[in-house]
Deep mutational scan, measured.
Amino acid sequence: SSYVCVECNFLTKRYDALSEHNLKYHPGEENFKLTMVKRNNQTIFEQTIN
């Protein structure tokens, strides 16, 4: 599966890399929402900020 930060167009295969991205680029933000999307037999988790 892949993880994408929709706000930044940041894409990674690792959830911990997304967490690091959030700490660096969205410090103090807590209203993240992950949406699971299936595309071409791949699972993509799209992160948006509410």
Score class of each variant (00 low, 15 high):
21 H>C: 00
26 H>N: 00
31 N>K: 09
32 F>K: 14
15 Y>N: 13
35 T>Y: 01
7 E>G: 14
8 C>E: 02
25 Y>T: 13
40 N>P: 04
31 N>Y: 03
39 R>C: 05
21 H>E: 01
20 E>L: 07
28 G>P: 04
39 R>K: 14
22 N>G: 01
45 F>I: 15
20 E>K: 05
14 R>N: 15
41 N>C: 13
13 K>E: 13
27 P>A: 07
46 E>Y: 04
10 F>E: 06
18 L>I: 09
13 K>L: 14
49 I>R: 13
22 N>H: 02
19 S>P: 09
49 I>W: 11
48 T>W: 08
23 L>R: 06
46 E>S: 06
2 S>V: 02
29 E>T: 12
4 V>P: 01
8 C>Y: 01
14 R>G: 14
35 T>A: 10
40 N>Y: 03
34 L>G: 10
5 C>N: 02
23 L>V: 13
8 C>W: 00
25 Y>M: 13
38 K>Q: 12
28 G>Y: 03
31 N>H: 04
37 V>N: 15
12 T>R: 03
47 Q>P: 02
11 L>P: 15
4 V>D: 12
6 V>D: 03
36 M>F: 08
23 L>A: 06
17 A>W: 08
30 E>S: 10
47 Q>S: 06
48 T>D: 09
48 T>M: 10
8 C>V: 00
36 M>I: 05
1 S>V: 03
3 Y>N: 01
35 T>P: 04
32 F>L: 09
39 R>S: 12
44 I>C: 08
5 C>Q: 00
40 N>F: 03
28 G>C: 06
42 Q>Y: 13
19 S>H: 02
46 E>L: 02
47 Q>Y: 04
2 S>N: 10
33 K>T: 03
43 T>Q: 15
38 K>T: 07
20 E>T: 07
23 L>G: 15
28 G>D: 05
19 S>Q: 15
25 Y>D: 14
44 I>M: 11
17 A>F: 14
29 E>G: 09
7 E>Q: 06
34 L>S: 13
23 L>C: 06
4 V>H: 15
29 E>W: 07
35 T>K: 14
13 K>D: 12
3 Y>K: 00
31 N>R: 07
44 I>P: 01
43 T>I: 09
10 F>Q: 04
15 Y>L: 06
10 F>M: 10
20 E>F: 09
43 T>N: 10
44 I>V: 12
22 N>R: 03
32 F>W: 11
12 T>E: 13
3 Y>L: 08
19 S>W: 04
36 M>C: 13
31 N>L: 04
49 I>M: 05
31 N>P: 08
37 V>Q: 10
39 R>Q: 12
42 Q>D: 14
7 E>I: 10
27 P>Y: 06
37 V>D: 09
5 C>M: 00
1 S>Q: 02
39 R>W: 02
23 L>I: 04
39 R>P: 09
19 S>L: 09
32 F>A: 10
37 V>G: 10
30 E>M: 06
10 F>W: 12
31 N>E: 07
14 R>T: 15
4 V>K: 05
34 L>K: 10
